[in-house]
Design a protein around this nucleic acid. Structure first.
Lengths: 315, 315
DNA sequence: TTCTTTATGCTCAAGGTAAGCATATGCCCT
DNA sequence: AGGGCATATGCTTACCTTGAGCATAAAGAA
């Protein structure tokens, strides 16, 4: 079982750790990048690392200068094209989602926080459905589907587009970030799929490109996070120690890319006993002063079972 | 960013692929094993493999002699202790969940299907809560919690046990397979945690052990599958081409380890339009003949968006 | 003061879900 | 043939969750 098969060869690979490091600052979702926003931070798995996760933690903390809260593995893949040289060496990339707060320290070196909607403009529906969707993306998807050689391919393309982008009676599903990006890639609308694009071709429509498959990894991270906030209290890691309910709501909305009903949001958060009042108030909000809350102690330990359930089911 | 740090060393690792291969046969959940049930099938990532997933597919199909349907990545980890020799070599293990049907071919060689509840007897609640839970497991967990040196540790242990095993007002949650196994491991009740156990110590209570961390990986796979059947129509891959609604229900129950309300199950399956009647009936069921169904064509393509939603929310 | 903005409490209607009742339709046994 | 049994299948009810809107409170700004 463990012997290599006939025409195979035991492979020695290099392991690379890639992080989708997320924060939310004044209502905007942010992702840590390097190389002028073109890459996600990544580094090799080294001998001194106790485990993959601690390896990731080690050098991400070295870069951002503060401890990471939540870390979760995303996906592992081996890319044939990434062979370092002509040898049998390949790279196995192990990607992670990590959450933190931007405030804590200035990022080192060339690292910089970016709004993640710079990379996925079509994902932000907080101010309504982006006009670029109806004006540019959907028509082009239709053209792309119509250009299929045969009918089955056409139907398949259009069906997938309809599901992913909420057309033809399907509702927009904010979790389908990866499916949407992959469709745009397959249709060669994004720069990664066709590097002959000029550097700023429709940047505001199809978003900023990244190196190699980093934008795909970012999409995976966003999708995972959007799914997770609905049943696990991970928002914690993104919030300051004390906050108003509206701030909490804005954070969730930033991640989900859609607005939620304020009263229902409060009701849900309160009845789940996720938070408790600090007793203090803040008047920084512009209107009636808001109560300040903190997360209830022990929620982190308890919630692996229960779940948070935020009102993000529909629109 | 990509330069190795000071006291680190570029690491070359071997990549190992591990499969949790699942089938359901006459109402029992089955997992493919090798080495007298002590190991999950696993093999090295080789040069001839186009990708990690196709590598897994290649040799699992070679072993089971039929194509795999669904494959999904579970988790990747690097184990310090598994260094092949004294060198810098380490093993990165990438585990997958795969679904198939047992009938299709006899497994090769020493491979054998086993009932997965042989490894997790406490997970099968279809015939009611297993008596070993109340009789042995819970009392021992209590003893273990009480034996903590300090109060915080005690509280933490007991809280985790209560959540995982549905005590103190918490409901049993069939998805917490991994948490339960890890608790039993931490408390050193399972053989893997304490190899000085006699070979059959309380086999019927704490289940059959596996090599290294394979039982943990199996637990991860079961947990993932139990979560997935609730919102994705993955049961398909486990069913024969045509089946009765009760057979479908029994398959879901086998996976979930709990019974569901028959009428509600039917309603849900039908209203989701997952299946269609074949027109044929079967009288093999013992009572009134049942209609035969097949899965609706295109469900696989469509469902990445929607979800299946089986009635497994509570008890 | 009046308007604007945010906070907060409450109610209602629609839809979904758990559970149970009732009936249908076959087989097996006597 | 009839009774008992086992499964299939339709329908109803009570309850809970969730989306949405109305109304009021409490500040600062015009």
């Amino acid at each position: 079982m463990r012997q290599p098969a006939k025409n195979s060869q035991r492979l020695s690979v290099a392991a690379e750790l890639i992080a989708v490091l997320v924060a939310v600052t004044i209502g905007q979702p942010r992702v840590m990048t390097i190389e002028r926003g073109q890459s996600l931070p990544s580094g090799p798995f080294e001998l001194g690392h106790r485990s993959l996760q601690s390896g990731l933690r080690d050098w991400v903390e070295q870069q951002t200068r503060h401890p990471l809260g939540y870390i979760e593995q995303l996906y592992t893949f081996a890319d044939r094209d990434r062979a370092a040289n002509g040898s049998a060496q390949r790279v196995v990339s192990i990607s992670y989602l990590a959450l933190t707060r931007e405030e804590q320290a200035a990022p080192a070196d060339k690292a910089a926080w970016r709004n993640w909607y710079d990379y996925f403009p079509w994902e932000d529906h907080r101010a309504g459905v982006p006009s670029a969707l109806a004006d540019v993306i959907v028509p082009r998807l239709k053209t792309w589907a119509d250009s299929a050689d045969d009918r089955p391919t056409h139907n398949d393309r259009w069906q997938r587009a309809a599901i992913a982008f909420g057309l033809d009676g399907y509702a927009w599903n904010e979790e389908l970030v990866l499916q949407r990006y992959e469709l745009l890639y397959e249709a060669a609308f994004v720069e990664e799929a066709d590097r002959s694009h000029g550097p700023d071709t429709l940047l505001s429509v199809f978003g900023r490109a990244m190196q190699a498959d980093h934008r795909r990894i970012l999409a995976t991270g966003i999708a995972r996070l959007r799914a997770k906030i609905k049943y696990r209290p991970v928002v914690f890691e993104l919030m300051p120690p004390t906050f108003t309910l509206l701030q909490l709501q804005r954070t969730v909305e930033a991640l989900a890319g859609r607005l939620v009903h304020k009263q229902n949001f409060r009701r849900l958060v309160e009845q789940q006993e996720l938070v408790e009042e600090t007793g203090a108030m803040t008047a920084d909000t512009g209107g009636r002063p808001a109560k300040l809350y903190r997360f209830r102690h022990g929620v982190l330990a308890e919630r692996p079972a229960a779940g948070t359930k935020l009102p993000l089911s529909r629109g």
